[in-house]
Every structure is written in structure tokens, then in C-alpha cells.
């Protein structure tokens, strides 16, 4: 009798898990295949692993010097520099603004918070028409500085909202007591409140890194050679001469692995991060 109740849940969860996990495993398996194995029908599960794609991505071995893999390694370095710098800046700015929004009342605060959040909703292509001109005239097109501005801006809004959520969870008495004892508010913020929201800062940085690391739309228009990121480089591996599947899957796997590592870091704050700090505050 008890088993009968289990059939439906097991079937639904089982099928969904298969649909959910299968493609990701297929990406990782395919990244190790040689060209003939990639196009084998029926698809092969047992094959001799082939590292040409990874050699191109990490700039080692024979495959790294071929014309088709030119610049792949450089784009990996670009991605690391741009995503990390943007993450640090967005987390810093978001932490400061989040604290201000949590503790103080200021002019048009509600409008400010809406404006901050709306930046998260903006379709990249819509503002790009403008950025394209602004970046060219300021010499920011195809530079690290320009792309770091982008990865900072796309995350500042989210970072502010998440950090406000975390600061809201710290009782205001913490600063009140410090102020009463003659410490400055800056001291209370830095030495008392900040350590209490360490987990929140880590979560904010985790989210920011993931979005910065995956950013494609801005990079595809605003970079051409020098500051091309790995996702943008992947898209040009699908050129006129056909698609470099081995490179795409190897680069794809390299793009996915840090995300899974960071995902582990933010897993308990997932609900909070995805709802702008409003739900799941206790995590």
C-alpha cells in the first residue's frame, strides 16, 4: 500500500532529474570527444578521451597554436580579470549602498531602491545602442576598463538589494551601543556590523561573479579582439568554416566548473539572492 503512493513522486522527480542533469553531463562528456566521436550516430558513450579542446582553451600543446583556436586562452584570461574585478567593485559598492539603505532615511529612498532594482531588468541590447557610441568616443571599447564598468554595473543593483536584506537582519542596537560608548559609526560599521554579515558578502560576491562570468550580450558588441571574454570567443567559434564543437564544449566546461564551485558557496542563500533579499532571509 505504501509503495503505491511512491510511484508518482518517484516517476516525476526521476524524469525531471534526468532532463535536468542529463544535458550537463552530455556537455562534459562531449568536451572529451574527438571529431568523429562527436558526430557518431548512434552517439557513443565509450570512446578514447581527446584533449584538443582543452589544449586550445588553456593555450598548451599542438591544438593551442592552430588558427581556429587563436586567442581562446587570451579570452579566458580576459574573462577572469573582468569577472573578478567587476565582482569586487559591485560587492563593495553594493555593501556600502545596502548599509545606507538599511540604516538611514534619505531623500526619495523608495525611488532610489526602485531605480537600483530596475537596472537589473534592463535588456542589455536596449542600452547597448548608447554604450556603443559612448565607449567608442571615450576609447573604452574593447578594453578591460570598459568591460569592468559593465560587469560592475550589471551587479550593483542586485548587490545593494541583497546586502540591504542582510543588514536589515542585524539589530540597530549594535551601532546604538557602540555610539553610546564613544565609538564612531564608521568604526561600528567596519568592526562590528561588517563581520556579522560576512556570509551575506560572500553570497553577494558569489552571485555577482556568476552573472559577470556568464555575461555575453554586452561583450559581444563592445569587444572585438583585445578584451573579448570566453563566452564571446565561444560564439565566434561558430564561424563561416563550421562550428568548432570540441572547443565550444571544452570552453563550455571550463566556464561551467567555476560556476558550480561558486554555486556551492551560495547554495543556502539562493532564495535570497534570486528574490533581491526579500525572501529566505534566515538562511
Amino acid at each position: 500500500m505504501k509503495n503505491k503512493h511512491l510511484i508518482l513522486p518517484v516517476v516525476i522527480l526521476g524524469l525531471y532529474t534526468l532532463y535536468n542533469v542529463g544535458p550537463l553531463l552530455w556537455l562534459m562528456i562531449s568536451s572529451l570527444k574527438s571529431r568523429p566521436d562527436l558526430f557518431a550516430m548512434p552517439p557513443t558513450l565509450l570512446f578514447e578521451p581527446h584533449l584538443a579542446g582543452y589544449e586550445a582553451v588553456f593555450g598548451v600543446g599542438a591544438a593551442a597554436d592552430s588558427a581556429s583556436s587563436h586567442g581562446v586562452f587570451a579570452s579566458l584570461i580576459n574573462s577572469i580579470v573582468i569577472a573578478c574585478s567587476g565582482t569586487v567593485l559591485a560587492t563593495m559598492f553594493g555593501t556600502l549602498a545596502g548599509y545606507a539603505a538599511s540604516r538611514f532615511n534619505f531623500f526619495a529612498k523608495g525611488d532610489f531602491m526602485f531605480f537600483v532594482l530596475s537596472t537589473r531588468m534592463i535588456p542589455p541590447v536596449a542600452v547597448m545602442v548608447f554604450y556603443h557610441q559612448m565607449f567608442s568616443s571615450l576609447g573604452l571599447a574593447d578594453t578591460w576598463t570598459g568591460m569592468i564598468m559593465i560587469t560592475t554595473f550589471i551587479n550593483v543593483g542586485l548587490a545593494t538589494w541583497i546586502m540591504k536584506g542582510f543588514f536589515d537582519g542585524v539589530p540597530t542596537e549594535v551601532e546604538a551601543i557602540a555610539l553610546m560608548n564613544g565609538y564612531s559609526r564608521w568604526y561600528a560599521f567596519r568592526k562590528l556590523v561588517l563581520p556579522m554579515v560576512r556570509g551575506g558578502i560572500a553570497a553577494t560576491a558569489g552571485f555577482s561573479f556568476i552573472f559577470a562570468w556568464n555575461e555575453f550580450a554586452f561583450g559581444s558588441i563592445l569587444t572585438t579582439t583585445e578584451a573579448k571574454t570566453l563566452p564571446v570567443r565561444i560564439s565566434s567559434a561558430a564561424g563561416a568554416t563550421g562550428i568548432e564543437w570540441t572547443q565550444i564544449f571544452a570552453a563550455g566546461t571550463v566556464l561551467v566548473i567555476p560556476v558550480i564551485l561558486f554555486f556551492y558557496l551560495i547554495r543556502r542563500h539562493l532564495l535570497m539572492g534570486m528574490t533581491f533579499g526579500v525572501l529566505g532571509k534566515k538562511g
Partner: peptide, 9 residues
């Protein structure tokens, strides 16, 4: 995991 991955990949 899937919602965190790169849409281009």
C-alpha cells in the same frame, strides 16, 4: 544548477 550557467554555452 542550470539557472546559474552561461546561456551562451
Amino acid at each position: 544548477i542550470p539557472m546559474m550557467l552561461s546561456p551562451i554555452v
